[in-house]
Each structure stands twice: as structure tokens, then as C-alpha cells.
């Protein structure tokens, strides 16, 4: 029972966390805590097979699936806390509480008596016992489960499949299109710039700097920009330091105000990451 009394409060807290935290990823991780704790409880309840299945299926497969989908979907990762349906939250909490209290009272009403324990049932091995039951008394349900799983797999494929309505763009067509775009709107013909490579900041989340000192938006992934996890380019700070030590070398001068703005922004325009920052935003010089 020690395991239970250690794990039970943990599980309740984690479960509350699943419901209460705002970020879905945190919810998923807290759910993993609940599930692994549950697996341990299965062990204490003498269900070793379910312990394994709980960890493999739930924690290993289902939760991973959740995380995958969160990665695909979870751009607006945080939930708004404003309740839109009038009275829903109050009623939900009241209903939940009443249900919980009623359930506890109902359970308390029943005198269950002493546990029999799994000693006899697990005498020939837990897995063997389960297999015995699955392939004898529950064989029909087992077969039905097989059908269910196949159907579910097919259904998921059908739902996730996106019908291609036009032929895939080949290399030649792509080259022609890009040439066309260059001709009409002057869009850069070559590959996108790689992210910034700096002595202190060298990562995919840091944009490269253009010759005029402005960050190249295209150099970081749009997804990172959308998530708001793009680091600010540290270059401008360095430029000021260099200016301070070397004095005015000419050619390169910086309006410190704009530089601070840029560095403090921490990210880029997330609305339209395709917009290329123009060089004339930068003041040419003030002497």
C-alpha cells in the first residue's frame, strides 16, 4: 500500500494539472505521469501484463500520437481561459463535484470485504491466465476487436488522406515558375539563406544577418517564427561594441535606437514571414 499512498496524491495532482494547465503539451506530459503511475498501480494490483501494456500502448503509443498531433496542430498552443458558453464552467464544476461526491458515497455504501487476491488466478502465470480467458470465453470479443482495429486503421487513413487535385509540380515546372516570379516581382531566384552562424549563437532558431545588419527573415523556419521561438539576432549588439572599440571606421554607422528596437523585438513579423526586410529601413548615416 505504500506505493499506492505515494502515487495516489501524485496522480490526483497530475490529473488536476492535465485539466488546469493552459498548454496542451504540458497536459500531455502530465497525463504521461498519471499513466505511468497507473502502470505501477497495476503492478501492485498483481496485473503485470497490464502494467506492460499500459506503458507500451498508452504511454508509448497513444501519448506519442497525441504529441505528434500536437506538433501538427498546436500552433495556438495555449487555450484561451475565457469561457464562451454562459454558465458552462460553473455547471461543469458543480456537476463534476456532485458526481464525484455521489460516486464516493456510493462506493462507501458497499462493503466489499476482504480482497481475495490474485494468488490463485495468477498461479499459472498472469499472461497465461489472460491468454486462456481471451481465447476461450472472450474469443468472440477478441475477434470483434480485431475487426474494430482494422476499421479504425482504415478510417484514420481515410480521414488523414488528402486527395491530390492537381498533378505534382515537377522540377522543370518549378524552375519555370520561379523564373516567372523573378521576372514579374523580382523574387530571389536562388535558395533561401541559411540561418545565422555566429560565435555565440549558432542555431536554426537564429536568423542570419544581411550585409546592412538587418536579420534575414527567410533564414529561419516559418514554423519557428509562428511559434514565437525565434531568437533575436545578437549581431547588432556586437556591431555597437565593435564601433565603440574601433571608433568610426566609416561606411558602417548605426542608429542605436533602431538597433535596440530590433534586438528587443525578439522575433519577426509573424504575420507575413515572406516579406523581405528592405535595406532602406536602415538609416544610411547621420553625419
Amino acid at each position: 500500500m505504500i506505493a499506492f499512498w505515494v502515487l495516489a496524491p501524485l496522480m490526483v495532482i497530475a490529473a488536476l494539472g492535465v485539466v488546469l494547465v493552459r498548454r496542451a503539451v504540458h497536459s500531455a506530459l502530465l497525463l504521461a505521469v498519471v499513466m505511468i503511475s497507473l502502470a505501477v498501480l497495476y503492478l501492485t494490483l498483481e496485473a503485470p501484463f497490464l502494467f506492460a501494456v499500459q506503458i507500451i500502448v498508452y504511454t508509448g503509443a497513444i501519448l506519442m500520437l497525441f504529441l505528434f498531433v500536437l506538433m501538427l496542430v498546436g500552433v495556438d498552443a495555449a487555450d484561451s481561459v475565457v469561457e464562451t458558453i454562459r454558465g458552462q464552467r460553473l455547471l461543469a464544476i458543480t456537476g463534476g463535484l456532485v458526481m464525484g461526491v455521489l460516486l464516493v458515497v456510493v462506493v462507501a455504501q458497499i462493503s466489499l470485504g476482504t480482497m481475495v487476491g490474485m494468488g490463485a488466478a495468477n498461479a499459472g502465470g498472469n499472461i497465461e491466465g489472460l491468454a486462456d480467458l481471451l481465447f476461450s470465453r472472450y474469443v468472440l470479443s477478441f475477434e470483434a476487436t480485431a475487426a474494430l482495429l482494422i476499421t479504425a486503421a482504415l478510417g484514420a487513413m481515410l480521414l488523414a488522406h488528402r486527395e491530390r487535385l492537381e498533378p505534382k509540380e515537377g522540377q522543370r515546372a518549378m524552375a519555370a515558375r520561379r523564373m516567372q516570379e523573378y521576372g514579374t516581382s523580382g523574387r530571389h531566384l536562388g535558395p533561401l539563406p541559411s540561418p545565422g552562424v555566429y560565435a555565440r549563437h549558432n542555431a536554426v532558431d537564429t536568423p542570419a544577418l544581411l550585409p546592412d545588419g538587418t536579420p534575414a527573415t527567410d533564414s529561419v523556419s516559418r514554423v519557428l517564427a509562428a511559434r514565437g521561438t525565434v531568437r533575436s539576432a545578437p549581431a547588432l549588439g556586437d556591431v555597437e561594441d565593435v564601433q565603440r572599440t574601433l571608433g568610426d571606421v566609416g561606411g558602417i554607422s548605426g542608429g542605436s535606437g533602431s538597433a535596440t528596437d530590433t534586438s528587443a523585438g525578439g522575433g519577426y513579423n509573424t504575420e507575413n514571414p515572406d516579406t523581405r526586410p528592405q535595406g532602406d529601413d536602415w538609416p544610411e548615416g547621420d553625419e
Binding site: 458552462q88 461543469a92 456537476g95 463534476g96 458526481m99 455521489l102 460516486l103
Partner: peptide, 18 residues
């Protein structure tokens, strides 16, 4: 709103339990 429907389900459960 599916949550309203779920709320009525919970209400039903509460009634059955009661």
C-alpha cells in the same frame, strides 16, 4: 456546442447515481 451536450450527459449520470 458539444460541451453542452456532454454537460447534459453528466447531468443524466448524476441523476442515475442519485
Amino acid at each position: 456546442f458539444v460541451r453542452s451536450y456532454a454537460l447534459s450527459v453528466v447531468g443524466g449520470v448524476v441523476l442515475v447515481l442519485a
